[in-house]
Design a protein around this nucleic acid. Structure first.
Lengths: 243, 243
DNA sequence: TAGATTGTTAATCGATTAACAATC
DNA sequence: TAGATTGTTAATCGATTAACAATC
């Protein structure tokens, strides 16, 4: 039977639900409702129910969702039941920071190797993780079963290491380099770009002059006239956001 | 006159356009068309024209957009004409990596201070940037005119440093901590969450077993029946993406 | 039972894309 | 002029939200 296509936005929210369930689910609470979840995460309860309903009927009418049960379900949906070996390409500041970043603990991600081209770095270990030469990437992917690579090299080298990774059989890439990478359509790339984020934030800084400080809640941004600045406030000066 | 509300999606794409214009615009090409821009960035040309049209008529019919002119316009729209002082909170691996990350050069962002609570770190300098105590944050915000803070502290401390920053008058935050932060509605938070990104990628890894290797282009993912796994492929196994 | 909350359909909202007259 | 490409309107598409019967 042909299953329904799941919208990407839904998949992106699952980790957000999962985190809430794991953090706060450590309390004694046995059930959580879509309403409470929505409150805490700033999301519409109907959306949460709809998201979860793509994968099955996980809730109990009148009660909500059993926290432990839902947690396990979401982990299974995301494929987090087996350990997933990942590699970091780039042994610079950012690459090493990411490698040492122990947020993967308990999340079943394991950084098995760091790759660099600097002979002065190759052979060293960082937090027990060996730094290897980029030329060894294909061999390591095969040997360690690496599934995801995180690219943390300077922008001018990003495309070429992406090519190497894809050739080695990698189909999932998390790119921190400020560069648009071209990869075959079967490879999934997610990008995290500090510069773009800062530039976007910079835009919204401009609104400030006209935003009345006190009654910020009641402000209807799109009705405010702007003088000095050429551009406008977005209606949502709100925060929210994640994923 | 009341200006139009600009959708957030539009603002998020402006830095993407800007980067293309600045990188490739260093060539001799004087004009770029929405078609070419779309090709390179994987976006619909009509969307690009529409995005730019929110802010004015920047193009020349029959020619396209003058690269230098459009670059300047977008920088102006984003408010990148003056230097924007930013601060990094968290002097750990990630915080220091971000602080040293020289991608801000020429982008008019300047990290003026790093904040930490570790007495062993406070007083040191990293790349010429002083590490100060978090208690000094409000003073520094006032003195240096800090506009944006980047939060790179462990998740359990993220909310409390966000509170300090907001109290100090910060209205734009880039959060790297894996935590959902609550801030007043006039404060803008963008979050970058490695764990969420990896978990999302993990979901799409599962499709692979059923994806025929050779004719990946012709695969209609949503028509593929899945056996072992409970969930399905998203139609877009494509890459694209940025921001 | 009465109250609560789900799963799901229908309504709304917003974003993307197609199409084309205007014009360089 | 002929070809190209804009700015913009209309059409499409998809995602979010509201509403409610089902039911614990």
């Amino acid at each position: 039977m042909v299953k329904q296509k799941i919208p990407e936005m839904v998949i992106k929210r699952l980790p957000v639900y999962l985190r809430y369930l794991e953090y706060y689910g450590e309390s004694d609470r046995e059930y959580v409702s879509s309403f409470e979840l929505g409150q805490k995460l700033g999301l519409n309860p109907a959306q949460i129910r709809k998201d979860l309903a793509y994968f099955g009927e996980f809730g109990k009418k009148g009660l909500g969702y059993e926290v432990g049960f839902l947690t396990k379900k979401i982990r299974k949906i995301l494929g987090l039941n087996q350990e997933i070996p990942i590699a970091v390409i780039g042994g610079g500041n950012l690459g090493l920071a990411i490698s040492r970043y122990n947020v993967y603990r308990g999340q079943n991600f394991k950084v098995t190797a760091i790759f660099d081209v600097d002979p002065g770095k190759v052979g060293l270990k960082v937090n027990g993780i060996p730094i290897k030469h980029v030329d060894d990437l294909p061999g390591e992917v095969a040997r360690e079963g690496i599934r995801i690579v995180i690219i943390a090299v300077p922008a001018p080298h990003a495309q070429q290491v992406a090519d190497v990774a894809v050739k080695a059989g990698i189909t999932a890439i998390l790119n921190f380099a400020p560069a648009k990478l071209k990869v075959p359509s079967f490879v999934r790339i997610h990008a995290t770009d500090v510069t773009c984020e800062l530039q976007t934030l910079a835009y919204y800084l401009q609104g400030e002059g006209v935003v009345p400080k006190a009654p910020a809640e009641s402000l209807k941004a799109d009705e405010v006239e702007i003088n000095e600045v050429e551009t406008t406030l977005d209606g949502k000066v709100v925060s929210t956001e994640s994923e």
